[in-house]
């Protein structure tokens, strides 16, 4: 079981609806809370993370700030049409502290993970870290 959503592990950001050069979405998957990805306004925002290979994931952890409602979808292939909803969660507001969102999934095969931020407590939202626990599927 390891974090499959790490850039060093080969995960990539396939799509991101907000891109600030100083805070790109790659900061989510760099494994540290210091760097972060910020949205540039409007909702919903989404990020699609593509794992190196087809994985079996157990849980998703997010360190974020000012997120109110978040939804997760997974897809076993690269195509857009085949995303299936995984979970949806309301997050509490924490002032001046990172929110930690944990979603346990059971076993789920996924190649891509889609994170949709439906609403936030402020105009912008920051995601500091994304951690997906899973293991590689062989075969």
């Amino acid at each position: 079981m390891f974090d499959v959503a790490l850039a060093s592990g080969g995960a990539q950001i396939a799509l991101s609806t907000s891109s600030d050069d100083s805070h790109p979405p790659e900061h989510m998957i760099d494994g540290t809370d210091e760097t972060f990805w910020t949205t540039t306004g409007l909702y919903p925002q989404e990020v699609i993370v593509r794992f190196q290979a087809l994985m079996s994931i157990n849980s998703v952890e997010l360190s974020s700030y000012d997120v109110q409602n978040i939804a997760l979808e997974t897809s076993e292939s690269d195509s857009i049409d085949s995303f299936e909803p995984l979970a949806e969660k309301e997050v509490e507001r924490t002032d001046h502290q990172l929110q930690t969102v944990e979603v346990s999934v059971g076993e789920r095969r996924a190649q891509c993970l889609r994170i949709i931020i439906n609403s936030g407590y402020d105009h912008f939202v920051a995601v500091h870290r994304l951690k997906v626990n899973g293991k590689a599927l062989h075969g």
Partner: peptide, 14 residues
């Protein structure tokens, strides 16, 4: 301006 402020806040969280 708000965005810049937010960035400051996010930076301070880490």
């Amino acid at each position: 301006k708000m965005y810049q402020e937010r960035l400051q806040v996010y930076s301070s969280l880490a």
